[in-house]
Amino acid sequence: APASAPSNPSHFMKGAIIQLATGELKRVEDLQTQDFVRSAEVSGGLKIDSSMVVDIRASQQKPGLVSLHFTVGEQQSKVTIDVPPEHPFFVFGQGWSSCSPERTAQLYDLACHPLQVGDVCVSITLQQQP
């Protein structure tokens, strides 16, 4: 997915069928942390990163969007992305979370926790080639 999220992606709709890298099929609302960890392990070339939310503010560039500031991976690199408030992120050990759980429920019928500073989200990156 691009760094800034596309609008209304149907793969977040409750009931959407997701294929894990192991080939297993699960509904988006049933996914667990381990599903992402295991999928990254069996996917060649992709790596899971822990991305901690360090700041959440209204986007200056794009009205109506939210700027999420992360520190990503071991290098704690700073990355900022602009997303719609209802865009869900998978938080380790917690599940789906967004800046506006009410809007996420309206748009995708997906139950969410409120995304907060300090939450550690699942993100992916390319594995460094030796």
Binding site: S10, H11, L31, F36, S39, V79, T80, F90
Partner: peptide, 19 residues
């Protein structure tokens, strides 16, 4: 019924991207 890959659900936050 469409089937989506697991990695379409999570952001690709490449460490090289910084503020």
């Amino acid at each position: 019924v469409p089937v989506f890959p697991w990695h379409s659900l999570v952001p690709f936050l490449a460490p090289t991207q910084s503020d």
